[in-house]
Amino acid sequence: MNNTIFILGVGAFFLMMIGLYGVLTNRNVFRLILGLGLMETGVNLFIVGASYWKGGKPPILGTVFETKAVDSYADPVPQALVLTSIVIGLGVTALALALMVRLKETTKSIDIIETKEEEVNE
């Protein structure tokens, strides 16, 4: 097994675990969001790592790397996936933070646990 892949894999795993730990042990919404962010980063790292191979070139034709052989390119799909996933993650985080602000506004707290009987929606 390749050293780099190992490091990427272990790093991704630990990032995810740290994030998971954060999600499991906190009830503060902000920290929960942070934990989720960490997990997402971890998993993105994992995807990128999965497509790594030593000596792989960026899959761009006719650039400074000047490789013609398609065989020597790194797989471009995971990178596209990661990009998408980062964008989605951003969206989710932004929405989550917005919700957090709403929560703070309405209940003066950013604790996820229900504190009292809450009003209902029709």
Partner: peptide, 12 residues
């Protein structure tokens, strides 16, 4: 489910 701090645990 009422307790938000258990959400992660339920998943695990």
């Amino acid at each position: 489910s009422a307790d938000g701090s258990r959400l992660g645990w339920t998943f695990v």
